[in-house]
């Protein structure tokens, strides 16, 4: 297992993945800075910056990024018979799938930490008043990460199946675009897995989006349920994947 982790790391480390991981936090940072500057937050500056940046980051970028990471993890295997080579080695498919999944989640964790850094950077640059609301911020950043668990599982499954880099992303886009409508609906929003990163990242109080005032139980029920389904399906496919 540890050797698999090391071999995946070797494939990853000298790639553009690090720039890709920083793209969304950077964009959110710029918009957060421009959007909060000059507004009178009256002590709620942290929360309004978080809400603005989280909306930008988690509505489309974070779910789509999950697909980019998953496709990147399978890129080398799809090129030039890599699957044959890798699976001919004495490695278990289950372990390989698990390690690749762990890397997708690790890259998402990195993205979320960079987002946290961007938010703190905006706060420091604009000199926000009042204490940093650590609990709300960490709940948002961590919640967004947890909400990506099922999406990453599905995308990894699709990425192992489709050889083209853009094809799994197309699947991802088709499933993520409904967010644009679903996020405004308190009836359907809580049940749509691709809307969960946004719902989990927007701070709970205020900021008038309909679907956010929901119990953590509902959110995590949907997230956990789809996580189990997608992971099982992806893993079951990978075990039978012809190479």
């Amino acid at each position: 297992m540890l050797r698999l982790v090391r071999s995946e790391w070797m494939k990853l480390r000298r790639t553009v993945i690090w720039i890709v991981a920083a793209a969304s936090p950077l964009l959110a940072g710029v918009v957060g800075y421009a959007g909060t500057r000059g507004t009178d937050g009256e002590g709620a500056e942290w929360m309004s910056a978080l809400a603005l940046m989280a909306a930008l980051h988690a509505m489309l970028f974070l779910p789509l990024l999950t697909g980019v990471f998953a496709a990147l993890l399978c890129r080398f295997e799809h090129a030039g018979g890599g699957w044959k080579q890798l699976l001919a080695l004495p490695v278990s498919r289950t372990q390989l799938f698990a390690v690749k999944y762990m890397y997708v989640m690790f890259l998402l964790l990195l993205t979320q930490l960079l987002f946290l850094a961007a938010l703190l950077g905006v706060g420091a640059a604009l000199g926000f008043q009042g204490p940093v609301p650590w609990l709300a911020i960490l709940r948002s950043v961590g919640g967004g990460w947890v909400a990506c668990l099922p999406l990453a599982a599905l995308q990894l499954g699709v990425s192992t199946a489709l050889p083209s880099f853009a094809a799994p992303l197309a699947v991802n886009v088709v499933l993520t675009m409904p967010n644009l409508l679903v996020m405004n609906s308190s009836t359907y929003g809580p049940y749509y897995p691709w809307a969960q990163p946004l719902l989990a990242m927007i701070p709970m109080e205020g900021h008038g989006m309909a679907a956010i005032n929901l119990s953590a139980t509902t959110l995590f029920g949907v997230i956990l349920g789809s996580f189990v389904v997608f992971l099982t399906a992806g893993w079951a496919y990978f075990m039978r994947k012809p190479v």
Partner: peptide, 15 residues
């Protein structure tokens, strides 16, 4: 590496 153009595309969509 198609990750770069696709990430640029995602940024483009959001911008």
């Amino acid at each position: 590496n198609q990750a770069v153009p696709l990430t640029v595309g995602i940024i483009g969509m959001i911008v």
